[in-house]
Nucleic acid binder design. Structure first.
Lengths: 172, 172
DNA sequence: CCATTGCAGATAAAAAATATCCACGATAAT
DNA sequence: ATTATCGTGGATATTTTTTATCTGCAATGG
């Protein structure tokens, strides 16, 4: 059982995007730099998040990504499913049918109990991830993490976020 | 997130071994046949179960595998961890440190909140698997599954289990 | 002795994850 | 309009992991 590295990247990016103001965006290249990741590969994962409507993207010179909805309504489950796919970790291959004695298909209408138990566990896993809101991750980071780390992170966001043209970002 | 196919094989084999009587054993080749699996590869997984003290093995012509302890004290978690390894699915690469701004290591003493949330979810997953006893899987199968399937399975076990030499298997 | 079985290690084949690149459309600044 | 920047999608390459096979070896019952 293993989660791809893209999950870690995706969550960190989403958390960082939670810090950009208004409808500003942040370029994928900036996030790749922030985490020392391959820009071209990170794009793939950000794209998955876009497709899942977790992020929005803006093309063009001032373009980049931003959250598609408030961080309060984004969970780690949303992100994990978007990046890793929605299929369960355990896939029942129905190997019980593969023996030398081939019974009629009607003998296997009842779902495999092993499969049921494994899926139940995964349900618990997903429920726990669904409880973890991106906003919680961010606020815990703000309060608990080392002030130097928080300051550096915020500075990075402030430096790389890009205000958008059309919509006024609450200018004083 | 994906579980190897070996997990399914391992659980099915363990469930089948739960049906052998006394200290009898069943050869790996028999189980491979029962599930239509590659014998040489199945051996690998059975070996992991042996190493984890979930199964016992006996060499020699009458040899094979049997449960190392009663099915009541074997959980799906035991099996999954034995086959897939004990490392968590999410491994924090600490990519937050990989940015262009290198802070002192002391700025990262607090564990990453993302990692904590992911591990918490996995803890829930493992807890659910720990609740699933092999004996439950087997007894549910006996009562719920199609009688033809149960009969075929029991017949297979009866035909392939091999009594051991030294210990008397409650012979009438 | 000898046939059968599990064990360990080397190896190979297949699949998946990771990473890079390029042509393209969108867009903002000039 | 031109240009430079950016995301998109597809093709492709590289690396790692998984799956599978084979061989020699030790154990053991007959």
């Amino acid at each position: 059982m293993k989660l791809g590295e893209g999950v870690e990247a995706a969550i960190h990016c989403a958390a960082m995007l939670a810090g950009v103001e208004g409808d500003s965006t942040m370029a994928a290249s900036a996030m790749a730099e922030a985490f020392g990741l391959s820009p071209s590969y990170l794009l793939k994962h950000l794209n998955m998040l876009s497709a899942a409507r977790i992020l929005e993207s803006v093309s063009g010179p001032a373009g980049g990504y931003r959250l598609a909805r408030p961080a309060e309504r984004i969970t780690l489950l949303d992100i994990v499913l978007a990046v890793e796919g929605r299929e369960p970790a355990f896939r029942c291959g129905e190997i019980r049918r593969n023996g030398p004695v081939r019974l009629d298909a009607s003998a296997y209408v009842k779902p495999c109990g092993i499969n049921a138990a494994m899926l139940k566990a995964e349900k618990a896993y997903r429920a726990a991830l669904a409880e973890a809101k991106l906003s919680d991750i961010v606020s815990e980071y703000m309060t608990d993490a080392d002030p130097r780390s928080v300051a550096a992170g915020c500075a990075f966001v402030a430096r790389h976020q890009r205000p958008q043209k059309s919509s006024s970002t609450k200018q004083a």
